[in-house]
Design a protein around this nucleic acid. Structure first.
Lengths: 315, 315
DNA sequence: TCAATACTTTGTCCAAGACAAAAATATGAA
DNA sequence: TTCATATTTTTGTCTTGGACAAAGTATTGA
């Protein structure tokens, strides 16, 4: 009686791919792909194959390709574009990540937990996040998108990673460092793992993170920032979050927030953004977080004049 | 200084209120509210006042009111609906809880964290959950529904409670106890705190909780239960979760799950259920969890034959 | 090489109609 | 009464094709 869905309605495809319903419909009209089947009601039903291809296309768009090109390509040409990235991606210990993926697929949570601890103590929080946790999350997300693992395996993995970070954090005393950074996501973005990783990094870097949890409306972020005397607001966007919503939300936040409070926007969701909205720092990789942190400390801890200013600002 | 936006485009309103663009447009067409202004392009611009009212309406809908009624009401009648939730709540040991609520309202998270720890060590996990955490969550939820506190205060409170439970749990070794209980919620139910509290209680009671996180589809719950050799599946329902969805989901789960795996359904969301669907235990209060646990152990811990008497070796 | 211009691509918005799932209400039986 | 079933209303999501501006690309001129 198990109902394996062979095709998804448009709302599900929107969620799975991060492409808006409008975009899906206009692509069909303009480029002739995707061409979903229709149910009795005349509504679109996207076969899983097309959904997978859409995910692949979305990934390529985020990497800088243009939709008009991609959508006219056939299966093979698409795969050809997908491959060369693998070569350039720094293959940090693929072997080790493979071992991890095996544990995820076999949902062996005891072994997972043990390996988490071992890896964390072996390479330290900062390297653990950048070299293991972040790429692993990406791979698990990928595997899920390709239907190689189920919801259950993904959930179990997330929960154990979350457990690890939280227990690591509970062992760290929080001293009154600077900057004070508010961590949250905009409404609609549910993923908390990114925030937890940032919290961990900030803690070991002697900053003062304030974790607000996911899905805070802009107006409430502003209230929180003022009440807790925040220096910077850090937002996290997963790859599924619509880019347009992200940029619009960030711009709105920038408008509503005092100019002396920085905005840092991170996560896979901002990788596709070429140029940041004015007054916002992009953090596509965790390494960039350290850059932001350093920049903030330099401008605030020394005098307020910007060092590398091109213009002679004081006349 | 910075131009305070006096009106928001439809995408922003979707993000802030959680109402889809389609819904916003169809409400305007059907009920005559909201009536946004238009920009030069003819696109909707929602004044902040209307956005606030939409947020209020959404909250009332989540509480069970119907859109058709709410949208024809004026300002005053709407506010009147926001108040009268008072009478029905039992007021337990209010003095201490009042102190708590004060911390929540002043969002003093350092003091919150400290008081959490103190209370937990003073009265032990089991009493802490039943006498402090659970009623406090109810009161905070209430206060939020009545607009006495904002999203920001509610988020901060939840995060710190979660942090507390997770750090307490990370200190407890998990031994191979029985029953093995799978903890999760059905799709649509996002709240994790209930699961964490159950995890804490089960751990101190020498059971073996497997936390799967929120929003698992029924079919995946079944997969997980079989793979992890689960004895009981425990679901949590917050008060916001529609009762009909809850019963339907539970019934479906009961159908798909082997008969020897128990189903325990807990949380505020099941309090209104008079009679449980066949083969399902209801846990409206945390105290009932202990009853379920005891019952399971009595039937299973002796040998597989349904023998009522205790073993002689104990006496 | 760089900046300003003109052209192309692309995502979002709009309108009004349609329909089924959910909720409320009515009806009948134990 | 209380429960189960049928009927009506409510309500959110999906449909179509057209329009438009912002972002991206190509072209031009210094």
């Amino acid at each position: 009686m198990n109902t394996d869905p062979v095709a998804l309605p448009i709302a599900s495809v929107e969620r799975e791919t991060g492409l808006s319903k409008d975009t899906l419909r206009v692509w069909e009209r303009r480029y002739g792909f995707p061409v979903p089947a229709r149910d009795a009601k005349g509504e679109r039903l996207y076969p899983l194959g097309q959904v997978r291809r859409l995910v692949q296309i979305k990934r390529l768009i985020d990497r800088g390709h243009r939709p008009g090109k991609l959508l006219t390509l056939d299966e093979g040409a698409l795969a050809a574009l997908d491959a060369p990235l693998d070569a350039e991606r720094p293959e940090i210990s693929t072997r080790h990540l493979d071992r991890w993926m095996h544990l995820v697929k076999t949902h062996d949570h005891e072994a997972m937990q043990a390996l988490f601890r071992r890896d964390l103590f072996r390479c330290g929080m900062s390297r653990f996040v950048q070299d293991i946790a972040a790429p692993l999350i990406a791979r698990v997300g990928d595997a899920w998108a390709r239907n190689q693992i189920g919801v259950f395996e993904e959930h179990l993995f997330s929960q154990h990673l979350e457990k690890l970070f939280r227990s690591a954090l509970s062992g760290l005393a929080l001293n009154d460092g600077r900057p004070r950074v508010l961590l949250t996501t905009l409404s609609g973005e549910e993923h908390t793992l990114g925030l937890l990783m940032v919290e961990a990094l900030l803690t070991v870097e002697d900053a003062y993170p304030v974790l607000l949890g996911p899905q805070t409306p802009v107006s409430e972020i502003v209230r929180a920032a003022l009440a807790k005397e925040i220096d910077a607001v850090c937002l996290s966007f997963s790859s599924a979050y619509p880019v347009s919503l992200a940029t619009q939300g960030v711009i709105e936040l920038r408008r509503s927030l005092p100019a002396d409070i920085c905005i840092w926007a991170g996560g896979y969701g901002v990788k596709s953004l070429r140029k940041p909205p004015g007054g916002v720092c992009l953090i596509p990789e965790f390494a960039d977080l350290f850059a932001c942190l350093g920049a903030w400390r330099q401008t605030r801890q020394t005098d307020p004049l910007p060092r590398q200013g091109k213009h002679t600002e004081d006349n």
